[in-house]
Every structure is written in C-alpha cells, then in structure tokens.
Design a protein around this nucleic acid. Structure first.
Lengths: 196, 196, 196, 196
DNA sequence: CATGAATGAGCGTTCATTCAT
DNA sequence: AATGAATGAACGCTCATTCAT
C-alpha cells in the first residue's frame, strides 16, 4: 500500500502524508463537501500538488478510507493475536469494537462521503474478515458468543454505530448493544418476554 | 410547524405540498445534493415559487425533516395508545421501533443532508418524547424493559439504525439489537461472561 | 432556427444575440481558446447567463457556426435567384464566392475551433447545396463553367480560401483561383504546357 | 537555426532531436493543445529537459515550424536544380507544389497552433524565396507561367491548400488550382466569359 | 403571486512553467 | 545536466439565490 514502483522523493512522501492528514481533518471537520483548495491549503501545498498525488477527489477520499480500513484491519488482527494468546474472546471482541468506534468516529465524514463519490470502503474479503471470523469462532467455542453471530453482523453493528455523536452517547450505545453479542442474549425471546 | 400566520390560499397550500413531496422523493432518490431546480421541476413549479415557500434549501430540507419527525411522533403516540389499551409495552415498543426504521429508511437521505445544511431534526421536547417516556415507564413496571432505559437511549438506537442498508440487513440489526432493551439483557455482565 | 417552443422573453432574446455577437467577435479576435468568462463579459452578462443559453462551449461555437452556415446558404439562394432572373451564372458564382470569402473571414476562427470542440459546420444536404448545384448546372449549360465542376469542388475552394489573411491577399487569391472554374480552364493541360 | 553558440553535447543533440520528433508527432496526432508533459513523455525525457531545450511552448512549436520551413526550402532548391538542369519550369513548380502539400499536411496542426502561440513560420527572405523567384522567372521566360505570378502568389496558394482534408480532396484541389499558374489561365477574363 | 432568466461565487480540474533534488 | 514534484492562474461548468417580467 505504501510501496511505490520507484521510491518516492522524500518531500513527495511528506507531502502525500500532509495531504492525507489535511483531508482526514477537513473532511471530518467540515463534511465531505470541503473544497480541494481548502484541503490543499490546510496541507500547506498548492492544488496542483494535491492533484499530482490524488488525481480526483474520489481518489483522495478513497485513500482516506483505505487508511481507515487498514486501521480496522490492524485492530482486528491485534485482537485475534490477543485471543490466540489466551485472552477471553468476548473481551477481545468488545475491546475491538470499542476501538473501532473510536477510530470510525474520526473517519465518519469520509465514510459518508464515500458513496456519493463512488469510493468504496470494502472490508469484505480482507484480512480483517478472516481475523474476525476466527475471533467469533473462538468466542462461540468458549460459549461466550451467540452461536449465530457472523462477521457480517459485526459489520452491521459497526456501520450502525452512532459515530457522529459525542463520546458519552457512543459509550452508552456500546453498553446497550454489546451484550447482544453474547450467548446469553441469544436466549432472550422478545415475544416470550412480551407475554410476561 | 405547518401552521401559518394567515390561512394560505388553496393553491399555495397545494404548491407547498407538491414541493414537499417532490423534495422528499428527489432527496431520497438522488441524495441531498439534488438541485433546487430539479425539485421545483418535479413539483411542477418554477424555482421562484419554491423559494417563496422555502426561502433557503436549509428550510426545505428542514421541512422534510419536520414531516419525518411528525410521523415518528404519530407512531409513538399510536404505540402509547395501544399500550394504554392493554397491549404489552415491550411488544409495542418493538413494533414502534420497527416502524420507525421503516419510515426512517425513506428519509435517510434527508437526514444525512441535514447536518451539512444546518437543519436539525430534533425529537427532544416533543410529544414523541413524552409518549416514549410513558411507554418505557409501563415496560419497566411490567418488568419487561431494563430499568435504566431512557428516551435518550431510544433516540440513540434509532439514530444508529443501518438505514442506508437493504431490508434484510435492517431486519438482522433489529433482531440483534432489540433484545438489548429487555430487563433480561440488563443482567448480562460482559466482564463476567468474559471470564467463563 | 430562431423559432422557440415558447416565445422567449424579450430580454432573453436580446441576451442571446449579445452573447452570439460577443462570441463571434472574441473568437475571431483572440482565437477559439477565449475563455467563456471573456465572452460573457464582452456580452455584458454573467457566465451563468451564457451557460443558460449555451450549455457547453461546443454549443456556443456550434451556434456561431450555424449562423455562418445560414449566411452562406442565404447567399447561395440569393445568387441562384439572380441567375434565374437572367444574370450570368458564372458572374453570379464569382460574386457568391467573393461574398463567401468576405463572410468566412469573419468566422474563420470559429471554423477552426469547431473540429477541436466536436462542433461541425456541415453545409452538405443543406439548401445551400441544392442552390449551388442548380447554379453550376446553369453555368455548364451556358458553356461558362467547366463541365466536371461539382458542389464539392466549391466547398473545397471555400474551405481552402486564405481567410486568415488580409483583404488584398484574399483578392489576389480570388483573382488567381476563380478563373479555374471556367470551361476555358478545363482545357489547360499542365503536361502539355510543360512541354512547350 | 540549428546552429548553437557552443557545440552541444552529443546526448543533448540527441535529446533535442527526440523532443522535436515527439513534438511533431504529438502535435500532428492530437492537435496543438497536447500538453508539454505528453510531448516530454513521448520523447522519453522529463519536462525539465524539454524546457532546457525549449524555454516555452512557443519556442518548441516554432522549432517544429522551422523544420517545416527548412523542408520546404530544400524542396524549392531541389526544384530549382532540376529546372537548371533543363527540366520544364512549369512541371517542376507543379511537382514542388504537390510535394509542399504533402509535407504541409503533416505539419498542419503545428501551423494552426502557431498563430495562437505567437510563433510564426516565415518563408519570406529565405532561400526558398529566391529559389522560387528564379523558378518563376524561368517559367515566364518559357511562356509557361503567367507573367504576373510572384513568389507571394505561391505562398498564398500554399497557405490556402486544404491541408486538413483527405488526400483525394487535396488532389482535386491541385487539379483545379494548379492550371491557374499558367500563361493560358492569365488569358481567361471572367467578365468576358460571363457575357458569353 | 408565479415565472424563469440572470447572477456570480465556487468547484474540480488542467497545464505551462519553476525549482529543489 | 536531468529529473519530476510543486506551483498557481485559468478554465469550463454548476447551482443556490435574486429579481425583472
């Protein structure tokens, strides 16, 4: 991902990083409609430089998203490593989801911009998916995680987290929703409870 | 919100309705960046007329959102009525949330447009809030709903529903998340489960 | 060509004309790469107005060209009328070509811009073509015009006139080239002359 | 024009040639608006190198034009040589013009780009002019060429050739126009023919 | 009042040219 | 020298909003 055909010049690498930082920050701050000039100015470069690195706005947003996907993937793999080292699968998954929410909040704007621009943040088929699959398997084996839970479910929950909200709201959301992942939660029957 | 200072002329009322319909439809279909001219054309009026009714785009989106809030409110009050008539509070709340997800999906585009435009869909302080408060109270009294559940929690869940996803995804989300509202869910302790 | 679905507003008609005038003048003066803003400024309107009348630069150049084609067509038909009224076909054709050169010089820049922009100035199939065909026929019948002359030949000569040159140059060109249309010219054999 | 103050380094000469080749090819293929980067890429050098040899685009186009002028000049002098060796002056001039049309067609794009860029392809005062002058003189002396023909006339015809057209069109143009150079053509009086 | 033409700031993008490496 | 990254003015075009008809 960071490997180039020919090694980039040091200043070009620096500029690329500055641009990505600026894009992430400005898109998060002002929404996906920030002008390219604004991003360039924030990065301290001229528009032309921005366009040399990212030929279209879609490419730029895509790159921000790719970084985000990369982070999630890293978190997933780190979580799997911890589980393999003996940590509780459920605990690890919960930690992972907390971390994902934290990371995602920052990228919220980029994520919402993506569809409109045709850029896609596909986690599927990725390393993240296989790490999560193994994590879930371990959790089910340990009797902690509900047996019907899938990687897709995790994605549903992530994509539905209230990322645009303040931290306390996100915490409360996690407190309400995360127990749903457990084997215990699977035993709750809404209809039956409704009769009581 | 729909009350005017002076009674509007019949055709003006009709135009306002046509414009709102067009706005809802076009924003849902094409996203929040549809041009005002497109909305006007769909409504069968000229831009000038559109601007007479809604001085800025923000106002128009705000009105679409207000309609949506109105719908939610109606659903909440209808739900409360059913509960007052003896229906299970939990069942009624679950039905309400399903209905809200259905309605919200349609308005998803408008909702996502709102922040960028400075329009807000505030449910707080509304009739919806008091209806929901009473519903939750009844559910807690019946031992069905977790005791710490608040109206704010309901708003958190609604605002975090995966509205931009296909129906089956929304169903799965509901199946995972709604049990979290129950008193049984409140008894799940993630840390404790993690030790097992 | 100037007929609209609904009658345009008086000021819109005036603006359209001002824009076409400005476009013709600026393209002629500065070449086809004049900015749209420059043309708009010359016309005394804002760019938006220009774009309301001509959605793309291609359309604008196309319209300038269409005017030009219209003028040529009118000249051709006027020439035919004179010939039908008894004027010498050759004389009429020569006058027509002189007039065309005069008109074309003004539109030279637009013509050269056209291909690059994908706009086409097609004279073929037009009223001009049939008028010219009849003119040539009359000239041949009168023994004035070379028997193998076609409408295509006229177009070749027109498209090859040194329009970007000063008036005296264009006059000299006409003096050199126009005799070639005559029956007498057809009798000149370059090879035979070369032997003398 | 190709002479340098100090002898260029061998690779510099090679680069200059590669750049000119690329410029000629790209301008012919894509029109005069090809980017400098494209030309540089085609030449296999970086833009910086291109700019070392040709400080502005105008200079580059001017150089392409100069090459073209050089070719024409060579043709003119070769033609004169043939006439001096006893070939028919008219035949030689006709051949020369055919050759010029062939060469010019290739450089058409460069030529049309020139005015917009302020580069000029001046044939006047050149060796070509004196060669042509002598050729015309010989032709007049032989009674083949019209007595009032000047070098300027040749330039007018060249500059008015339909170079942007397909080969058959150019052939037909030559067939129509070249006889005009003859002494016989000078005897055609349009007015008189018009009376017949 | 409705209409729709006019406005003009702003956008994404390009490209001749400069300059650090 | 050669390289290619950086510059930034300019371009074609859009669209929320205003205003003459």
């Amino acid at each position: 991902m960071t490997i180039q055909q020919r090694p980039m010049r040091a200043d070009a690498i620096r500029n690329r990083a500055k641009i990505l930082d600026a894009a992430r920050a400005e898109i998060a701050a002002q929404g996906p409609d920030v002008g390219m000039e604004v991003i360039a100015a924030t990065a301290g470069v001229a528009v032309g430089t921005l366009y040399r690195h990212f030929p279209t706005k879609t490419d730029l947003v895509g790159a921000v998203l790719a970084e985000y996907v990369e982070q999630i993937t890293n978190e997933a793999e780190a979580a799997l490593d911890r589980a393999r080292s003996g940590a509780s699968p459920l605990g690890v998954i919960v930690e992972f989801l907390h971390e994902v929410i934290r990371i995602s909040a920052i990228n919220e704007a980029a994520k919402s911009a993506a569809p409109a621009l045709g850029a896609a943040a596909d986690l599927d088929e990725s390393r993240a998916a296989s790490a999560l699959a193994e994590l879930i398997e371990k959790g089910i084996a340990a009797g902690q995680i509900r047996q019907d839970l899938t990687v897709a479910d995790i994605y549903i929950l992530i994509s539905a987290a209230p990322l645009d909200q303040e931290e306390p709201v996100r915490e409360r959301w996690a407190a309400l929703v995360l127990p749903c992942l457990t084997a215990d939660a699977a035993r709750i029957d809404l209809d039956e409870v409704g009769q009581r």
